[in-house]
Amino acid sequence: MELAVKDIAEIQVGIADYKIAREPVKLITLGLGSCVGVSLYDPVTRLGGLLHVMLPDSTQFNNVNKPAKFADLGIPLIVKEMQSKGANISRLQAKLVGGAQMFSGLDDKMTLNIGYRNADKSRDVLKKMGIRILVEEVGGNRGRTMILDTRTGQVTIRTLGNKLQVI
């Protein structure tokens, strides 16, 4: 079964980065912790995009060298590029994965709720752009790997020690 899957090219999306691909390519981002993976899919053109967001809000920072790092800049950026490649914003379907709280312990000087804020901001930005969120798998305390299949728009989630989950 695995062998058949191997034939399809997989493009890796790095931290604070995004990638866009057309059917049949798979987009994958590894090890989402408090980061949030935002997948976007246009079922008509079968164009998919995957963004790996680290932080919610770029306005908190003085120099922004990588817009894809932030939910508020990264989402409009990937949507714009998908539109230029033929995606229609009214057809885009979003899925959110990640936003976990990885660490247990108490340290009030550390911002441990960032996962929650990443998911919240991503939701907010998508809603304002009129993009529908089909499903989300966020929060908890586990690291997740997220794979978008541009043939179907299905997202597969891998966590350590658990079965694959398809959303």
Binding site: G33, S34, L55, M102, F103, G143
Partner: peptide, 17 residues
């Protein structure tokens, strides 16, 4: 603080936190 999970998830979360 303690975590036992994927290396990438741990380090990026720590960096952000």
């Amino acid at each position: 603080l303690f975590a036992y999970d994927m290396l990438g998830a741990i380090l990026t979360s720590l960096m952000v936190a």
